[in-house]
């Protein structure tokens, strides 16, 4: 019996050491760690974080009946039921064969369950609902679903991430894997982990989605940005979320 306890004790020491070693070996950084202290404070303080205004608006919209069904989100999804949801999207909805991201999922609920018009990409209402849902996963580790059907889509995302594009002939990986931490025109290149979306970006003076951010990069490469409803974004999001697996969500994030 005593031996068993010692073995258990040793095992837990090993597990703890291993976890520590894992933590130390994990070189992944959220964009939060690369920005100045003033912006970090702005994100951390709910009364200063502009994204929180959208979370409040999202909460109102969540409880407001919409569409021919005259149902609100809250009629089906009770208080707190959205916890962890943003941490695992994109995912394949029930009875579907293709993944959707969180915005896609919100619009699917609108059209199928509320029988309402889908909300326009980057519209205030869509971003607010997304912010409200994502806020409920704040502090949760990113946890992509193990659904094997996602594998080919994720692989497509990885391929796009490594593909050179545009007149400048650069890939996402060239900047965000090979040169992260270096300065692009004086600005630290982040590792591109989607930890804070939707984010309030000072450059935009607005809340925006990961898609909007991806489009910014594509335009920077002088590449033709995909249409907002293109499956390429969902594939990239799947890959990026998998790459950031275990990192903590910060939504709504603030970024320069």
């Amino acid at each position: 019996m005593r031996t068993a306890w010692i073995a258990l004790g040793l095992a837990s020491v090993f597990v703890a050491t291993f976890a520590l070693a894992q933590g130390a070996a994990d070189k992944r950084r959220s964009g939060y760690q690369d920005m100045g202290e003033a912006l970090q404070k702005m994100q951390d303080d709910d009364t200063a974080n502009p994204g929180m205004l959208f979370v409040q608006l999202g909460e109102q919209l969540f409880g407001r009946p919409a569409g021919a069904a005259n149902k609100s989100c809250a009629d089906c999804h009770g208080a707190g039921s959205m916890k962890g949801v943003a941490a695992r999207y994109p995912a394949i909805p029930k009875d579907a064969d293709k993944p959707v991201d969180l915005e896609g999922r919100i619009n699917l609920c609108r059209t199928a369950n509320q029988r309402a018009e889908p909300l326009a990409p980057e519209s205030r209402d869509l971003l607010s609902l997304e912010a409200y849902v994502a806020f409920q996963s704040r502090g949760q580790p990113i946890a992509p679903p193990s659904d094997p059907r996602l594998a080919p889509f994720r692989a497509q995302g990885a391929e796009i991430y490594r593909r050179r594009q545009g007149q400048l002939n650069l890939s996402c990986a060239i900047c965000h894997d090979d040169n992260a931490g270096k300065k692009l025109a004086g600005v630290t290149i982040p590792q591109a982990h989607p930890t804070g979306y939707p984010i309030y970006r000072l450059e935009w003076q607005a809340l925006g989605s990961l898609k909007r951010r991806l489009r910014n990069c594509l335009i920077g490469l002088r590449a033709e940005a995909y249409a907002y409803d293109a499956p390429e974004y969902v594939a990239l999001e799947l890959y990026l979320m998998d790459r950031a697996k275990g990192m903590l969500l910060e939504a709504p994030g603030v970024r320069p």
């Binding site: 400048l168 002088r222 590449a223």
Partner: peptide, 23 residues
């Protein structure tokens, strides 16, 4: 990683504004 400043071939998904143009 140096962009090709005077080449228009072998590039993918060049934005329409820049298609066929060198940097």
């Amino acid at each position: 990683i140096m962009p090709p400043y005077y080449r228009t071939t072998g590039l993918r998904r060049v934005a329409r504004t820049f298609e066929g143009k060198t940097i």
